[in-house]
Amino acid sequence: MKPESFLVFREGFVPVEKTLILPEEIAHLRSLRLDKTFCEIEIRDGFGKSYLYSYEPGNKYISLVSEKILNTNLRTLSLAIALPKGNRLDFFLQKATELGIQKIYFCIFRHSIRKEFNLDRAKKIAREAASQSKQVILPVLEIVESKTWMEENKKKICILHPRAERIYQPGDFSEWIPVIGPEGGFHTEEEEWMLSEKIPRFCLPGGILRMETAGIATASLLAFAERKA
């Protein structure tokens, strides 16, 4: 009978014949009641490679069994969003990772209330969500100044805007990175820049959404409608 297994991420992992099992992996084994069982641990490096290791109860080291390259021939899914407040950031990050978003730009806008976050903690949340949902690629997280980033990427972006005349239709995001602004709305100068540069604008069906709700809705559309398209 095939031994039980579970998945973890070690970003940029380089395989060796024997590697030390990490404390958080032991904790995961205990939570699954596998710490006293012969089982297998799949380590993914976050870039498309997978390494299967065998675990023996009481041994601090796990042994390499096999390795493989996972299918990454899918279009990279990216979105940009202002930083949500409080634990809304955690919730958004979990769900966006579970939906397969591979690159998230956290933009600092003129009306942004939150302007920083703990990157190491955010990466830990993303790793756990990626393990739970068995993702192939770990999301890349960047915090950027919106004016500079949008100017550099103006041919690649579209704007989610509650007053846009164009309602989203499946496939509309296939050429662009959707951008979601802060809860206070875009600054007048930002609005004027978007109009002068003729940046495409879309609104989502329904009412005005909270920022993290709009982010999760957009992540869902990218994951299902855009990849299918």
Results as ranks from 00 to 15, higher is better:
F6N: 06
F6P: 05
V8P: 04
V8T: 12
G12M: 11
E17H: 12
K18E: 14
L22S: 10
L22G: 03
P23S: 10
E24H: 14
R33H: 11
R33Y: 04
R33L: 11
R33I: 11
E42P: 02
E42H: 05
G48M: 14
Y53L: 13
Y55M: 05
P57C: 02
Y61P: 00
S63Y: 10
E67P: 01
K68W: 07
N73A: 10
N73G: 11
T76V: 10
L77T: 02
S78Q: 13
I81C: 05
A82S: 15
A82W: 13
P84L: 13
K85M: 12
G86L: 03
D90E: 12
Q94N: 06
Q94P: 04
K95F: 09
I101P: 03
I101N: 06
Q102M: 11
I104E: 09
Y105H: 15
Y105V: 08
I108P: 01
H111Y: 14
S112N: 07
S112C: 06
S112H: 08
R114G: 07
L119E: 11
L119R: 07
A122L: 09
K124F: 02
R127W: 02
A129I: 05
A129V: 07
S133W: 04
V140N: 02
V144F: 14
S146R: 10
K147R: 12
N153C: 03
N153E: 11
P162L: 04
R163G: 00
R163D: 06
R166F: 01
Y168V: 06
Q169K: 14
F173C: 02
W176G: 00
I177M: 12
P178K: 01
V179H: 15
P182S: 13
E183W: 01
F186R: 03
F186L: 15
H187Q: 09
E189G: 12
W193H: 06
E197F: 01
K198D: 07
I199E: 02
L204G: 00
P205E: 02
P205V: 02
R210K: 14
R210N: 05
M211T: 15
E212V: 03
E212N: 08
G215V: 13
G215K: 09
I216A: 09
A217W: 00
A217K: 00
S220Y: 11
L222E: 01
F224R: 00
A225G: 01
